[in-house]
Design a protein around this nucleic acid. Structure first.
Lengths: 227, 227
DNA sequence: CGGCACAAAATCGTATACAATCTTGTGTTC
DNA sequence: GAACACAAGATTGTATACGATTTTGTGCCG
């Protein structure tokens, strides 16, 4: 509004909301009223609806007819499936990335890791998680696979939502070492190692989630009981 | 309109258009005017826009700002990437499907194949292609992987578009034997064989495309010159 | 006092209207 | 005769308005 450097189209709003979800500023189950969002961004409901529909298509929000839009609450089943899909896509993509990575790419990845550590040091856990996801997406981009990168982008965003719901051991910074090890494999163009590291990294992530208990869908009722 | 058995929501329209694209009734590059589509389905531009945006998100149509919606014309690069993504997802999914397939699933798959042959015999090549794609999606469903099935659904639709642009040897019915062989592997729960057959089937499909020539994007100019 | 029915309020679904942008046809000028 | 400038037409982008559905608050009845 004040600084219309970009078009305030629905894409911008969708990205802003997606970022907020990714950084856990919008917890799962949050209501996204069309009027409210429209007022925040200074646009009409028309463009807000377009943004929400796009987010619903990415499974980040759930649209309930005549009820409104809510930040999605991935089911246990969806959580497993998302990581299984990532396990199919990312290891092979990491191998391709290792085979064709350049010095510029490595420098960019290193900056990503540094930014992640900075965010973590500053106590911005949400932002650190977002940057951690960006690391995975960047690898797909380096592999020169835009189509797969798009899928991974979506899966990473959904993973962030899954982590928000099912995160178990909060203290463990498993990401840190895994990403460093991956960096080393990429730097020496060791595709086989990169593939293996990515595979175990994803398995680690999955095992850090509490996917055993909570068989019932964690509804907003949880907030009522917990708070 | 006349038979409003279902809600004429944007999803229905998007599916109808997607089906037309899938069956090659709407060739790549076709203009999808909002007014025109709205008049055809008896709805306002509002709902048409929602449908077109959804299709654009699935990469079946391309939205050009202030220009309108057009049936997408996949680039050479996109064509390769789509089949590379399928090569990562489908073989392992076929293995899972083989391990857990039931008699009911087998019967359903057989009906799919029969319907495909009927369509082919009736000269409905487009419909046969659509059913052929459904076969792949059904396997992902049998594997009990909804998330991956969704990705495959999208990739299959895009494949249909790719075939419309880059199809080379029209006479070859490579699909037929490949799907039958897959059926046999699934029937005896031979996961390893199913995985291998799916892998080579996808490679066969890719090799049946003419991805060497036509480095420049085939625009609508081709119609003007060809017609 | 608890449960049900009804009404008011809020929110979403869709249609229509207006503004912005692009395309295209026409006229003028060199 | 060709190229540019301008205007008319068409199409999309966005806002607003109205109808439908759901939610919720209130009052009556058992």
């Amino acid at each position: 509004m004040d600084l219309p450097s970009r078009d305030t189209s629905s894409d911008t709003i969708a990205e802003d909301i997606a970022l907020a979800i990714h950084e856990h500023r919008l917890p799962p189950g949050s209501k996204l009223s069309e009027d409210e969002v429209g007022e925040i961004f200074g646009v009409s409901r028309t463009v807000v609806r377009a943004a929400l529909q796009r987010l619903a298509h990415d499974r980040l929000v759930e649209l309930r007819r005549n009820r409104g839009a809510f930040v999605a609450q991935p089911s246990l089943r969806e959580a497993r499936e998302v990581f299984e899909a990532r396990a199919l896509l990312e290891p092979r993509t990491a191998r391709s990335a290792a085979e064709r990575i350049t010095e510029a790419d490595l420098a960019l990845l290193q900056r990503h890791i540094d930014a992640e550590h900075e965010a973590l040091a500053a106590g911005e856990a949400g932002r650190a998680l977002y940057l951690s996801g960006k690391f995975h997406i960047e690898i797909a981009r380096i592999a020169d696979q835009d189509t797969i990168a798009e899928f991974i982008t979506q899966l990473v965003a959904r993973s962030s939502l899954i982590i928000a719901v099912y995160w178990q051991r909060r203290g463990a910074l498993c990401e840190r070492h895994a990403h460093h090890a991956l960096m080393r494999a990429l730097a020496v163009h060791d595709g086989a190692l990169a593939e293996e590291l990515m595979k175990s990294h994803l398995l680690d992530l999955l095992s850090s989630l509490d996917l055993r208990s909570r068989t019932a869908a964690p509804s907003s009722l949880r907030e009522a009981l917990g708070g």
